[in-house]
Amino acid sequence: MSKIIIGRYIPGNSIIYKMDPRGKIIAAFFFIALIFLANNWITYSLITLFTFAAVFATKLKIKTFWQGVRPLIWLILFTSVLQLFFTTGGKVYWHWGILNISHYGIENSIYIFIRFVMIILMSTVLTLTTTPLEISEGMEWILTPLKYLKVPIGQIALVMSIALRFVPTLMDETVKIMNAQRARGADFNDGGLVKRAKAIIPILVPLFINSLTIAIDLAVAMESRGYREGEKRSRYRVLKWSQYDWINFAFFALLTVLLLIFRNH
């Protein structure tokens, strides 16, 4: 389980860590839009360079990023290969039935490949350098306008932060339950897929019951500490913009301008 890098935070101390989560989330979404501005070799190179610059700026090991891309690499290659064989136009190099390899096909499949990899790398930069709580707080800020549509943003954010807070607690519970069952002879590591899946059920049932107990206890504690649903609450944690966010936005503005100039070249 620890191999999955998507959505995992790794503590660090580079400039990207000091940026405000709101700025990082907005930038990451903006980047996805920006990538569609690229339409030729120069612009794609710019996007690639920019992404690698961001990756290096995190000061994390490159291997970590590779772990982020790896689980998706077959999906990406499959999509690229489809592009390669089914896109027509330009000089045709090879042709068999409906399949053909053309100049455009080669170009397009490489573009698609770059697009996917860059989007994954950029979102990995975001999730590796931002704690889940920060992301949820950033999202809360970004979604604030929905308040006017009567969406209970504050409550959703509280639910998110409590959920994140209890992930380690539930992990501990799981380990406890598994150990209790191992002590009585349960085996979680042997057997085929079906047998292993069946071994999970006796873990899930007590885990589910335990989490309900925790939820009830927590609700009682929250209420006795004065929590009132829908009531206005002040905030202890606040997000602060810093100079690093302006640097971040300046780089993105520069990238946008460069892309706009070179896309018509």
């Binding site: 927590l218 504690a221 004065g226 009531e231 002040s234 202890y236």
Partner: peptide, 21 residues
């Protein structure tokens, strides 16, 4: 464990204060 609402110590202490605005 089941009465610790905040993600860290100071957040948890602040919880009751936040509720009272």
């Amino acid at each position: 464990d089941n009465q610790f609402v905040g993600t860290n110590v100071q957040d948890d202490v602040a919880f009751g204060l936040e509720n009272r605005n």
